[in-house]
């Protein structure tokens, strides 16, 4: 026993890294081979996101801001896919923007993955438009409050926004009844709330999907300033299961494409990682108490 404690006390962090790699890789391989995912029970915050989008009538414009980059893509891409999937199925007019420089490419990838693949009848510039990246962080948001076209004068493809059918009737950001942000940090959901939602006098509703680290910081804004919240992969998996179950054809048993199961597939590795963390914390405490007892004994 004492040998075990000695090993624990001097445990090289590389063993922990190896254990983490195994506990994550195991479920990835298992799910990859079997295709099985764990069931999800949606929590109220995820249900709220689904309900807010479902409440909009077809043709309503929604502003979708991709405020993340490929680094956090692993955590945020699945929810971006599901959000665009629901909006496209609902027939909403999707206006994509990015306040992070690498956001426009992620928008293009999502459009390609969801809209071009499964909703080919939706027309670019009419049913959806990618306005690309604009630098300036909060100042872009402030400009949008008074003049949307000034904040985003051209689309990513260089077309003047005045000529874009999808932006008909959009003068200011509060002409969008719903703002969807996918956020990995600064500028992100918090800045949208502080600069746009609080200045719009309740005219715009906002739902957001964010990284796990950001989630605790956004709960204080829910449900008044923030109408729905998807926290990390867990939130994405809950929402994804909601969207999939509502969009599944009633008369068919066709399997859901893997791209619409990405979040639920990632819950397996998350389970492995969380269980390892709990085990590590328990082991760490065993070592701590053993060390303390031996000190007490030595003193007495």
């Amino acid at each position: 026993m004492s040998k075990f404690i000695t090993i624990l006390e001097g445990l090289d962090r590389r063993w922990i890294f190896l254990a983490m790699a195994i506990s994550v890789a195991g479920p990835i391989l298992f799910i990859g081979i079997t295709g099985k995912t764990l069931p999800e029970t949606p929590t109220p915050t995820a249900r709220a996101v689904y309900k807010e989008i479902e409440a909009l009538s077809p043709g309503t414009p929604v502003l979708i801001s991709f405020d993340f980059d490929p680094a956090s893509g692993g955590e945020l891409t699945p929810m971006a896919t599901s959000l665009v999937h629901q909006c496209a199925a609902r027939g909403l007019r999707m206006v994509f923007i990015a306040l992070w420089p690498l956001g426009p490419q992620l928008i293009d990838e999502t459009i390609k993955r969801v809209i071009l693949a499964d909703y080919p009848n939706l027309k670019e510039g009419v049913d959806y438009v990618n306005l690309g990246f604009q630098s300036g962080n909060e100042s872009v948001m402030k400009v949008m409050l008074t003049d949307f076209a000034k904040a985003f004068p051209i689309t990513k493809n260089g077309v003047a926004v005045g000529d874009v059918v999808a932006l008909k009737g959009i003068q200011r950001v509060d002409n969008f009844p719903l703002l969807i942000t996918i956020s990995a940090g600064y500028p992100g959901a918090k800045e949208w709330i502080q600069y746009v939602i609080s200045s719009s006098g309740g005219k715009i509703k906002m739902v957001t999907g964010c990284t796990g680290v950001q989630t605790p910081g956004l709960y204080p804004y829910y449900p008044v300033q923030l109408n729905g919240l998807l926290g990390a992969i867990k939130g994405a998996a809950e929402y994804e299961s909601l969207v999939n179950s509502s969009l599944a054809p009633k008369d068919s048993s066709a399997a859901v494409p893997a791209k619409y199961l990405e979040a639920q597939r990632r819950m397996g590795p998350q389970l492995g990682a969380h269980l390892l963390m709990i085990a590590l914390i328990i082991l760490g405490n065993i070592a701590f108490f053993a060390q303390r007892n031996s000190k007490v004994r030595a003193t007495s």
Binding site: P61, K168, G169, Q171, N175, P177
Partner: peptide, 8 residues
């Protein structure tokens, strides 16, 4: 001139 489109 069109200035706004709002939900019903």
């Amino acid at each position: 001139t069109l200035v706004a489109e709002v939900p019903i």
